[in-house]
């Protein structure tokens, strides 16, 4: 499996994690209860909505975009494209920054940690790592060829 294929697989896993959080936020699944560090605290805080949409919905949208982009990038047509690598890295960077902001909110504003948000943050970080590696690889190939 190439790095891009790993990114696509991780993004698919991320879709399910963020979908779970979205359904939880909408009250469709999950047991409503509060404990120290619970997802309930995080998901019912004022930061659980961003630009009028639940943060979990932004998560689903981001993972879907990342998944589609990564799948397309695994086609032979784009196999050596450093532009596609740059796009993957760009999308991954926005995800990493947003995820870092959410983790900051959990730690220093909400004072509670949601384990599913942590899982998502880990997936985003790994995706970011693979997109960096992919970008570096494609650029080194490009410089070798030229």
């Amino acid at each position: 499996m190439t790095k891009r294929m790993i990114v696509a697989t991780l993004a698919l896993a991320g879709i399910f994690v963020s979908l779970y959080l979205l359904l939880y936020k909408l009250g469709i699944i999950g047991e409503l209860s509060c404990s120290v560090g619970s997802c309930e605290t995080v998901n019912s805080s004022k930061w659980a909505t961003f630009l009028g949409m639940p943060v979990a919905a932004w998560g689903v949208a981001w993972y879907v975009a990342m998944f589609i982009l990564a799948i397309v990038s695994t086609g032979e047509r784009f196999a050596d494209s450093s532009a596609v690598s740059a796009m993957l890295l760009g999308v991954a960077t926005t995800g990493l920054l947003f995820s870092a902001y959410l983790t900051y909110l959990e730690l220093f504003q909400i004072h509670a940690i949601c384990q599913w948000c942590v899982v998502s943050a880990i997936i985003v970080t790994i995706i970011f790592g693979f997109t960096i590696a992919d970008y570096a690889e494609k650029n080194s190939q490009k410089s070798t060829l030229s």
Partner: peptide, 10 residues
């Protein structure tokens, strides 16, 4: 796995 977990919780 993802669909099974979501389906179970739903």
């Amino acid at each position: 796995v993802g669909a099974s977990i979501l389906g179970y919780t739903l």
